[in-house]
Write a protein that binds this DNA or RNA. Structure first.
Lengths: 165, 165
DNA sequence: TATTGTTATACTCTATAACTATA
DNA sequence: TATAGTTATAGAGTATAACAATA
């Protein structure tokens, strides 16, 4: 695999098809772990620590009521837990349970492994270039829309000892 | 925008975030045209001509019963029509209505325009390289799984005069 | 008043299983 | 028997609107 010519493939077509492929990988891996793609996305977002509902709505681009349902179902399945936010009694933080963390890690690794496999044939220089170009596109979008595709920044001093329970 | 360094972004992370971005664009554009993303995807697949239900299940990676519902709703909204396949009386072909074709074109162009905007800052060489690399990844997936991301090939002689109705 | 989150409601999307009709 | 598609059913995902509690 050398990535030479693009046989009649436009840039936008390429991006759309690539997105479908990644989505398919996500769906396949989720299913292997008995998760829906949305649950897998939620879990992967939480691996670095708890996030509040508001932060999650921004990260997932969902209405808050949609998120309530998503978290409800994940909580019912024992994947996540709601913990009260000590600093704001209206708010809560969503954190992974032990089981949730384990599944999240496996799902994340599974997706990474499959994508790595697909990109395995690319020369290192092309891999770097691809990463860089995608980074530039993401940055352009972030500058344009204010969207962030990583974890939302905590908006205040980080909770201390909130996990006490 | 010059696409220089990738600040701590791995290749797989980059691909996942790019996929989310494209999906978001798809969702935004769909909504502008009062479509669900799934309906938009269906419509865009049909712009080059009618496809049978079986071909659509392969192209969309859906169970046939899921597709029945999707087509039902699109048909109820006047976007597509089922036409009998003259060569196989079990089968039917899904085609765009006039209204459906118009919306499909606008949605497709809308997605393309937004993605073009995001990539507008990239030098031509990087654009070409991105397209080529993505093409290679898609080819790798196709070789690995047999998946096809373009229109399904018609499996027999193309219908002649099927639209007669 | 504004923000955080939930509830109520109505659709859409999806899969599994069972079915009909045709090949 | 196998294939093309539908129906029945159940659950998940999503949005809008109205609400409660807290800031």
């Amino acid at each position: 695999m050398v990535a030479t010519e693009a046989p009649g493939l436009s840039l936008t077509e390429a991006l759309v098809r690539l997105a479908h492929l990644v989505q398919q990988v996500y769906g396949d891996v989720s299913r292997e772990h008995d998760l829906t793609p949305q649950q897998a996305q939620l879990l992967c977002l939480l691996v670095d620590g708890p996030i509040g509902m508001s932060g999650l709505t921004r990260a997932l681009h969902l209405e808050k009521s949609s998120l309530t349902g998503l978290v409800d179902r994940a909580e019912k399945r024992g994947l996540v837990a709601r913990v009260r936010d000590a600093r704001d009694r209206r708010a809560c933080l969503i954190e992974l349970t032990g089981a949730g963390a384990e599944i999240a890690t496996r799902a994340h690794d599974g997706v990474a492994a499959r994508l790595e496999t697909l990109a395995a044939g690319l020369p290192a220089r092309q891999r770097e270039l691809l990463t860089g170009v995608v980074g530039a596109i993401l940055a352009e979008d972030a500058a344009r829309t204010g969207r962030t595709w990583s974890r939302p920044e905590p908006e205040g001093p980080v909770a201390a000892g909130v996990n006490g329970r």
